[in-house]
Write a protein that binds this DNA or RNA. Structure first.
Lengths: 198, 198
DNA sequence: GGTCTAACCGACCATATGGTCTATTCAAAG
DNA sequence: CTTTGAATAGACCATATGGTCGGTTAGACC
């Protein structure tokens, strides 16, 4: 694995677990037994470094766990349910889980660093668009009631997912996941088509 | 206003807007035209300082905006709806909004500082307990269906609230609020008692 | 072998940070 | 008037941090 890539990987790991501002470049280099020279040969600054991590690693991760699973012609409500279930199950079995990566950094940079926020928001938007599209397709295919507001559902879904992932870090993540999923299904049921009065 | 209290107030302001690790003690003192001496006369350390802020200011704020509004014998679903609506409306009209204070710090300290996390979790638990209690009372009074799992609903509510508040910081908070509230009502409708087959 | 250069080393720098400590102010108590 | 002690000032310290820069290594190419 190329050095540049290795630095990014451990960089993301540390930023994720300790926070961006609370992680020094030296921390990352110590972990890799590398020197300052190696780092600043590959990256212009700590910020530039993080932006690259966002584009290279985070974007891909979000895509593979939250967006790709939405593809398919089945009921999008089922796809989303399975997608969330999977993502949360992975978190439950990961004792190094600190919540949704994307969301954590958004919380850390909101109103603090516009450059980074822009890049993070790009990923959020991609997710949002894909969710909306999947729901609209589902509506078209008769899986959702005609009156469902797909944008609103998406906002609600993104919010709740971001939130649980944070709550799950605290205690009994497995219980939290179970409860969350149960209510998600309850909510989804209310989006199904109402009995048609032909 | 006593100096100690003033330091806490501006301290919370800065911690909230810039993050704990990204705000130095000097930043706070500069804002107040105070010296290090004044600070370390009143507080043992930066961490002790923040713990006191949590107990003195944050706990009260969370209580007044998220817990107190739950009191009353009406339908808890309505109380919660009004409570969230109010909290979000305040955020919409605050251009210095950076999301839910409580949640932001939880995100920042999760897995990073156990001492602080303990104090933050205490507040979360109080909120959780009060939500559960309100819902259970509502169930007893026939506002909720018998089969509703109050703990699960609470988890779902806390999650989604934390999440939106973060999303609202990004763009068009008013639209996000509107969409969120609409879906919350939709979800709440599904918790109402089913037609009783006497 | 000689040259070139990407990749990396590590000493160094200016600044910032949490925290300490002595000195000073000032009002109330005696 | 003196004493006392809470409250504040600000110089000082050890350490950490982001970043710079001249030097070294090792392989590719001639």
């Amino acid at each position: 694995m190329a050095t540049m890539h290795r630095i990014q990987v451990t960089g993301l790991q540390l930023f994720y677990s300790k926070g961006y501002y609370n992680t020094s470049v030296d921390d990352i280099l110590k972990e890799l037994n590398l020197s300052k020279g190696a780092f600043y040969y590959h990256f212009e600054s700590k910020e530039d470094f993080f932006v690259q991590i966002i584009q290279n690693l985070m974007a891909r991760k979000v895509y593979s766990t939250l967006i790709e699973p939405l593809e398919g012609h089945e009921n999008p409500l089922n796809l989303i349910t399975a997608c969330f279930d999977n993502a949360m199950e992975t978190a439950v079995h990961n004792d190094m889980d600190y919540g949704c990566i994307l969301h954590n950094f958004i919380a850390e940079f909101n109103g603090k660093n516009d450059v980074i926020m822009q890049h993070l928001n790009e990923i959020v938007t991609v997710w949002e668009v894909n969710l909306i599209t999947a729901l609209q397709k589902g509506k078209f295919n008769g899986f959702l009631d005609r009156h469902v507001d797909c944008e609103a559902v998406t906002t609600f879904l993104m919010s709740s997912y971001f939130g649980v992932r944070t709550l799950m870090v605290g205690s009994s993540p497995s219980a939290k996941k179970y409860r969350f999923m149960a209510q998600l299904r309850q909510y989804f049921k209310s989006l199904e088509p109402k009995a048609v009065t032909t």
